[in-house]
């Protein structure tokens, strides 16, 4: 009997250890985000340390930084460009990914192995930055929004997740349509795609988040200030110490510059925070599908 009691105690300690660990992890995750968030709401006349700022009562918060950003021409234009990149990018990426995933999912397709090889070679061997840069500039894509999403419009990883999803759809549905004389294209459009809404949404959002966050392609290929997306503007705001050519003091009004910096990243993250709950439930499933062999 004594043994069992000791075991229960040790189990209790085990769960205390696990739960305390998780609470600690939660704190480590939340504190930096909270301190940035409170920084973005800090009023211009705030006196005190950053720690005081973290515990400033919400009714003393100032939305000046957000109002300044949302009323500013270059911020609105950057947000518009980012939304265009998001939607055009997702449409383009799905347009190229879906047919590929579908072709790879048909086990009886002659030449499937060859197609798989063609997809895999660039995945395993990356020739590097400059050869890609030469291609994109040669195609005349400089100073177009397409330069941000077109070079990365097909991700092999996303294609394989989608392919696994197509393979899992019941074979009888496809077969019965084929017996009725439907072509493979009709099977794809009429049967596969309507059943694949969840995976199209998930993969679409994966691509979308990636394009929304990208600053590297935008930095490489876009010089025209009118075409700059949010990450580039954000980067310019963040790297400006004080006020420089990118951020004129008068342009952003009453808010302190550090609040502008913090507020700009939260505004830029909002679309992702909205998309996040929709994709979260597919994370574990997607990881398992992605690890299935082709």
């Amino acid at each position: 009997m004594a043994g069992t009691i000791r075991l229960t105690k040790s189990d209790k300690f085990f769960h205390f250890f696990i739960d305390a660990g998780l609470v600690l992890i939660l704190a480590v995750l939340i504190v930096p985000i909270w301190s940035t968030l409170t920084l973005s709401f800090r009023p211009n006349d705030f006196i005190g340390s950053a720690l005081d700022g973290m515990f400033l009562a919400p009714w003393k918060w100032s939305t000046a930084a957000y109002r300044a950003l949302l009323g500013h021409r270059s911020f609105l234009s950057a947000a518009g460009n980012s939304f265009r990149i998001f939607f055009e990018g997702v449409a383009t990426a799905l347009f190229f990914t879906v047919p590929l995933a579908y072709a790879l999912s048909i086990k009886t397709l002659p030449g499937r192995k060859l197609l798989y090889g063609i997809v895999l070679v660039p995945y395993l061997f990356n020739p590097g930055l400059v050869p890609n840069y030469l291609l994109v500039t040669k195609l005349g894509l400089s100073n177009t929004l397409a330069a941000v999403f077109l070079p990365g419009a097909v991700s092999v990883y996303n294609t394989l997740i989608m392919k696994s999803f197509f393979e899992e759809l019941p074979e009888e549905l496809k077969e019965s349509a084929r017996i009725d004389g439907a072509s493979e294209l009709t099977v794809l459009l009429r049967i596969i795609l309507p059943l694949s809404k969840p995976i199209l949404l998930t993969i679409g959002l994966y691509y979308g988040v990636h394009f929304w966050n990208d600053f590297f392609n935008a930095m490489l290929y876009i010089n025209d200030p009118k075409l700059q997306p949010l990450p580039i503007l954000l980067r310019n705001i963040l790297l400006s110490s004080g006020m420089n050519e990118y951020v004129e003091a008068s342009a952003f009004g009453e808010a302190p510059i550090y609040a502008i910096k913090a507020a700009s990243v939260f505004l830029a993250a909002i679309p992702m925070l909205v998309a996040y709950p929709f994709i979260q439930k597919y994370f574990v499933k997607g990881t398992m599908l992605g690890s299935i062999k082709g």
Binding site: F95, L100, Y102, A103, I106, L109, E184
Partner: peptide, 10 residues
Amino acid sequence: RSVYLVASIS
């Protein structure tokens, strides 16, 4: 054949 047609896009 229609699969090849759409796959040729990719």
